[in-house]
Design a protein around this nucleic acid. Structure first.
Lengths: 206, 206
DNA sequence: CATCCATGTGTTAGTTACTAACATCGAGGT
DNA sequence: ACCTCGATGTTAGTAACTAACACATGGATG
């Protein structure tokens, strides 16, 4: 699975990174994001505050998970260009979620729990929610590029693609929020599919 | 139009508020949001930094325009409950935009220019874009409430309403972004209607 | 018109997120 | 064994806020 060619330093670095993030999410969940300072996170992880900033550019990045943008973009690019945009993007989102949540069940237990903790923080903390929504906006730009709506097409066509893509990602966000509220009890791909169906009707029936 | 029963102090307060905001948006547009400190905004407006914070809780609020949430919510609540959600919300968004951009043409020239400056900043500055997206998320909650999907209905129905509403607001955001890029040359209601049509097809034909 | 109070404002001191610059220590190749 | 480079710590600094207190002025009351 994971690359075994990592040098000792790289493993140590990755280790402290995960250590810092784990302590951060735990403290934030316990006492609230705003009530915990970066210095406290650093102390809990046994490092200096500067080290925290070397691994995470901002306090918010301690919680924000880098969306699997690459996977989604690949799936969008691989979708047939003959289908409507909402179907292509929606299908890619469901597929990507299936791949991600379907990984090895043993790692899933711990990994998914951590992910749910992060998601809950993102939904409940205004600053994190805002940053998360903005990262989805960045994902939208990447998806639009992958859809092949390159500068060639009309500006009006590009606008329509933007609108459809943003609507799909909004449905995804609704599904993610619900997933966090449900504590992960419902299967994420199902939630995404249902959110898409609620917004677009049967256009996205895979 | 505006209430003439304002006391002197209220008019003074509103005056300094607009003064501060005008100087802020001008400075931000000229030199960039991050390169201008709140202290500089205060100095340009001829007040102390503390006064700026008394009028605007955060630096970001100097640019963020309070969305006409009330108008939109009213229009949503007034829409026929028999129609699908995307139609009800989409129609309300177009209607509200028509009302707002259709105001007295003389005030519109200056007001719309200021609004476009703010929008451009919101689109191009990450911190502002994030806050704006989050304020749209707040608007989403208000719209869902107004849709009458009160706790009575199924939790699943509430989820579907959330998904559809969020998708509509995503289309709105795409339209607003395009409007700012177009420098307001295209009529905003038309842009919104086209964005909705691109996402949902003919479901929203008003 | 004199008085009192509420409100907007200024000043100061503090907290916290974040940055820059320099010193140190240890991993990893020579 | 030596040298380099990368990870970390330390210090000092900037800027967005917040709290607390003092001051002045609008606006109502006698």
């Amino acid at each position: 699975m994971t690359e075994r060619k990592l040098t000792l330093r790289e493993r140590q670095r990755a280790g402290t990174r995960r250590l810092i993030q784990a302590h951060a999410v735990r403290l934030f969940t316990d006492r609230g994001y705003d009530a915990v300072t970066v210095a406290e996170v650093a102390e809990a992880a046994g490092v200096s505050a500067m080290t925290v900033y070397r691994h995470f550019p901002t306090k918010e990045d301690l919680v924000l998970i880098d969306q699997p943008a690459r996977l989604i973009v690949e799936k969008v690019a691989a979708s047939p260009a003959t289908q409507p945009v909402v179907r292509r993007v929606g299908g890619a989102l469901v597929d990507a979620a299936t791949v991600l949540t379907g990984e090895a069940a043993d790692e899933r237990a711990v990994g998914e729990r951590f992910l749910l903790d992060c998601l809950r923080l993102m939904v409940s903390t205004p600053a994190l929610r805002a940053r998360h929504l903005d990262s989805q906006y960045a994902l939208q730009q990447a998806i639009v590029d992958a859809l092949g709506g390159d500068g060639a097409a009309t500006q009006d066509a590009a606008f329509r693609v933007q609108a459809a893509t943003s609507a799909c990602l909004a449905a995804l966000h609704t599904a993610l929020t619900r997933w966090a509220e449900d504590d992960g009890r419902t299967e994420l791909p199902d939630l995404i599919a249902r959110a898409l169906a609620a917004a677009f009707g049967d256009v996205v029936a895979a």
